[in-house]
């Protein structure tokens, strides 16, 4: 592999902070979820890159990324369920509108 490890890591860092930026500027809950997916993805890349470049004989980073993907799937399904439920109650998915949990 002739691309230096730094480039991969910088790419993932950029992706992560773009996710942070999106999380801060958006109010729609689904968009927030997508920003979180971006951040998770960036973290996954980090795991994989460290594993591949520094400890290629083992699979720790590989499996962490794998499990993170699974957990992200679970998280997304629950989050979407909550979002749809909230939408059903208050007809809105703006994060600021969910001021109280009881309706």
């Amino acid at each position: 592999m002739d691309v230096p490890v730094h480039f991969f890591l910088m790419l993932s860092a950029a992706m992560f902070f773009i996710g942070v930026f999106g999380f801060i500027i958006r109010r729609n809950m689904i968009t927030l979820l997508m920003a979180v997916e971006l951040m998770l993805n960036a973290v996954n890349i980090n795991f994989v890159v460290f594993n591949r470049f520094l400890y290629p004989d083992y699979f720790e980073g590989f499996f962490f990324a794998l499990f993170a993907i699974a957990i992200a799937a679970a998280e997304t399904s629950v989050a979407i369920a909550i979002i749809i439920n909230v939408y059903r109650k208050i007809r809105s998915i703006e994060a600021d509108d969910v001021a109280e949990m009881k309706h």
């Binding site: 689904i30 979820l33 993907i69 979407i80 979002i83």
Partner: peptide, 17 residues
């Protein structure tokens, strides 16, 4: 999982809401 599963769920929820 990601591109096929999660994103489809997200798109569905977008279309629902």
């Amino acid at each position: 999982v990601y591109a096929g599963g999660i994103l489809v769920v997200i798109v569905f929820s977008i279309l629902l809401t």
